[in-house]
Nucleic acid binder design. Structure first.
Lengths: 142, 142
DNA sequence: ATATTCCCGACAAAAAAAGTCAACAATAGT
DNA sequence: ACTATTGTTGACTTTTTTTGTCGGGAATAT
């Protein structure tokens, strides 16, 4: 039940951008340094976020990344899904219960119900937290 | 955010034993067949469960595995922890907040709070479901 | 005795995660 | 125009984890 670094770093990077929202483009380098992520690796991750339309980039001197939406319009859940794909503790949740290809014991599978509950509780949490929430928390900690 | 097959198979196997609770030792072979798990692999997993004291085994003809506790005394959460280790979406939750070795940005880390909430919601679910609950559900589905 | 079944440790294949690199393209400031 | 800066892309590599496999041994019921 681990989040990969993609998800973790993705949220950290987006949080960093949110903290600097409205201050123009933020360079990958500075984000990487503040969040302790390898520049080259973060490059990849920002590419994913850009293609998903969550950040826009500006090349060249003074360039960098900017959120495309306001921090209170972006949830942690969205970011995790972009970085890691659908939230599902087990793959069989991705198939329809009728689809017998995935799991022969399909519809009658009792344990499947457990994992569905786990998924729902996870999504409830991550979908309820926005980047703005995190920024507020950060202010209070100072 | 995936459970490994260790956790999934572990719960499936324990559920299978729970279904046959009170009927004497259940052979690994039969569990593997019903649950669709490789015998050799399940062997390993049962070893883990045995060492943790959740099942006892009997060798020889008519041998097999038995739960050491009643199904309503065993939660899904316990099984998952045995098979996969502590439930923690990110490793930094395993260290004390003061422990700066793990995460320099330690105590002030805002995203850490998010993952802690995720963990709590997961544990709330898995710790509230017992094998007996699953057996009851299974009966109703028939 | 014998067939059955669990036990143990080593090994291995496959997949996923994590990270690195180099050449290229765009932009700002001079 | 030139230069330094910064993002873009795709391929490649390394490491770790997952998911098994195998073989010989030990215990037990019949």
């Amino acid at each position: 039940m681990k989040l990969s670094t993609k998800g973790r770093y993705g949220v950290s990077a987006m949080f960093d951008l949110a903290l600097h929202y409205g201050q123009g483009p933020i360079s990958l380098k500075s984000v990487a340094q503040r969040q302790g992520i390898s520049e080259h690796y973060l490059e990849q991750l920002m590419g994913t976020l850009r293609k998903a339309g969550y950040v826009k980039s500006l090349r060249g001197s003074q360039g960098g990344y900017t959120l495309t939406k306001e921090p209170d319009k972006i949830t942690v859940g969205e970011i995790v899904r972009i970085m890691e794909g659908p939230i599902a503790p087990v793959d069989c949740l991705l198939a329809a219960p009728e689809d017998n290809e995935y799991c022969g014991r399909a519809g009658t599978c009792v344990t499947r119900g457990v994992w569905a509950k786990v998924r729902d509780s996870i999504t409830a949490v991550v979908d309820s937290i926005t980047l703005a929430d995190l920024c507020n928390e950060d202010k209070q900690k100072e």
